[in-house]
Design a protein around this nucleic acid. Structure first.
Lengths: 366, 366
DNA sequence: GTAGAATTTTGCAGCGCTGCAAACAGCATG
DNA sequence: CATGCTGTTTGCAGCGCTGCAAAATTCTAC
């Protein structure tokens, strides 16, 4: 490898100090137009490109953030990741991706003091098997933003949608269609299943609000939120003495699995059984039937998470941990509205979760 | 942030030079046991962790490799990625993941001179929309290993399985079951569809070997290798005057889509139509029916790719570009063998592609 | 006991950049 | 014309590590 062009080379050609070249390259404010032009010409001429390694060392930062997700091949995470990468790149940050497979040890390791080697300046984390305790004795110096459901203890930020409200809305949509035996697929009644439990809460709230009973035998737990889970749970539901006429699925993948089982048993969606999903993944807009779903504002989640994390990274004194709510909306498609429904795949109906309400983490939810 | 422990601190405590500490930390050979012990004790005591940033700068390397895939949410890539990450980590390398969405401009940019900023030392690349020309005027200094189908011009390595042989084997399996109207889903008869074309070649070869005619109307092109592509193509096939009795799908996702359509039309798999996939993704071992598939040795592909790339990175004079073939095997499951078939999800039948044949890139294929 | 080879340890310079604070310039004001 | 003020540019040190080659030490053979 031949030697690369350095700041000093550019400085020599432009007749200024290397520090000034640095200022120009980094877009600092106080540089005269004349100087800037001269430097930029020299940069052009020599084909100078900053050496990120040296910059990182001098700045004491790696310029990278880690994003930790349980599964890479889950469309929801893949879509979210795209947004995060985009947002980070705009700020000159690079994204490291880590998949944990939901392994609690792996997850804990990533946020524990001592395990990292300055490879990343902060972490955006979507935990699955992480207990509250593990979160508690994490490296307190590591800037952290958590996605999904987990209430902040004040030392990190949490970004998500209002799962309870969204789930209530989804369930109400089904009830308002006149369905009276609504199933829920995806409950996780154990410590690490917080996100799922919030959705179950919303499901119950909706019934309560409408003055209708929840049919407990129709609330089906699943270990994950996959097609297979949805297919299996639905098979179970259909074997019941009195099967459901609607299903609230805790993810679109679950919904896809559910629909598969329904269709293969000769049932019509939504005529016989209405199905609603969660996440608004791309597949759901092209499936057959297309899926009615809760659509979280993924871009908002991604950009908010990045923004907060970078803020944390650059602050001397850590900012307070916030609960940040991204908006979501109910997108009605064929799996509840039928073929007669909107031609286009996407149609918003109700909007919820104001532009981005934030509040101190102490406050629980309403 | 309080100051971190440095090499010098450890050196002071251990009573040796900082260079010696560096040697110990990096596991260099010539260190007496006594010294090593002393240093290691000091490292322990102070909780020293090397500063990767400084190391990178001094070494002139970033310690990171980039892996570029078209789509992250494709299970095949996600599974391959896991292997690559694992293999790289063992060598002390970190993996940057980049998703291109198959965008040719994005793909070209990543391997073109000047676009990178020393963020990664080399690239493992699974191109989709990349033309031979774009490959030709790439940055010649950037160590590169290509996955999937693309013949090396000698300046980079190529790792993949023998797609023609594998496809032939898959097709022969169907023919040997007595099927006579075998369809193929996934051809891509245009410049960037090389991988698909190789599979089509194998499909034709199999017919030829068995002395049977290819039914041209049963060779269906698809833009991608998704569930939706498989479902759509299969619907088209079933609407034909004389539909197929077996389908060779160019990916397991296509196979899943195909099965979905078949089942929803009331056809039995494999009794009415046998289906075979490609890639051996995890889903296929748990679907209903489970999918017979071509199983590439992903771990071998991953570790070989990493090994070759790191070799390239560390060599002064670039090694010759090799064509590396990982083994594959046919895994027979329910979608061709029926329920009576093996209880376990995985059963190998034939093995192919010797442990890892390599040959100079000039040699085309046999 | 000693020359010479082999092994282990060390010192120094420097990777290319940025933080810091000082130096300098330009300009209006008294 | 000195004074202060804002805005721009500079010099220097040093981020923490490794490459290199020389120095110190140990080993081997005679």
């Amino acid at each position: 490898m031949r030697r690369e062009v350095t700041l000093r080379d550019v400085a020599a050609l432009a007749g200024v100090s290397s520090r000034t070249v640095s200022n120009v390259v980094n877009g600092y404010a106080n540089v005269t137009e004349r100087t800037r032009q001269r430097v930029e010409r020299a940069v052009q001429e020599l084909g100078y490109r900053p050496n990120v390694l040296a910059r990182n060392l001098a700045r004491g930062r790696s310029g990278q953030i880690a994003v930790v997700v349980p599964y890479l091949d889950t469309p929801y995470f893949a879509e979210l990741l795209q947004g995060i990468i985009r947002a980070a790149r705009v700020q000159g940050y690079n994204v490291l991706i880590d998949q944990t497979n939901g392994d609690p040890d792996h997850e804990r390791m990533l946020i524990t003091r001592g395990s990292r080697e300055l490879l990343f300046d902060g972490v955006i984390f979507s935990p699955l098997g992480l207990s509250q305790e593990a979160l508690a004795d994490r490296d307190p110096e590591l800037p952290l933003v958590i996605l999904g459901e987990r209430v902040s203890d004040g030392s990190f930020d949490h970004v998500g949608i209002d799962d309870v409200a969204a789930s209530r809305q989804a369930t109400e949509h089904l009830l308002d269609l006149g369905r009276r035996r609504v199933a829920a697929i995806g409950d996780q009644p154990y410590p690490t299943g917080e996100a799922a439990q919030l959705r179950t809460r919303g499901f119950r709230d909706a019934h309560e609000r409408r003055g209708l009973p929840v049919h407990e035998e129709l609330v089906i737990p699943t270990p994950r939120f996959n097609r297979a889970d949805g297919a299996g749970a639905t098979a179970h539901l259909l074997d019941l003495h009195d099967p459901p006429d609607a299903v609230f699925c805790y993810s679109d993948l679950v919904a896809l699995g559910a629909i598969r089982t329904l269709v293969s048993r000769g049932l019509r969606v939504p005529e016989d059984v209405a199905v609603i999903g969660y996440d608004d993944i791309e597949d759901g807009a092209y499936s057959n039937p297309t899926i009615t779903t809760i659509s979280p504002d993924k871009d908002m989640i991604a950009s908010t998470a990045v923004e907060r994390l970078l803020l944390r990274i650059s602050s001397r004194t850590p900012p307070p941990g916030l609960e940040l709510r991204a908006p979501h909306k109910l997108v009605v498609r064929e799996s509840t509205a039928g073929r007669a429904a909107p031609a286009s795949g996407r149609r918003a109906s109700a909007r919820a979760g104001s532009p981005m309400a934030s509040r101190p983490s102490r406050t629980r939810r309403d």
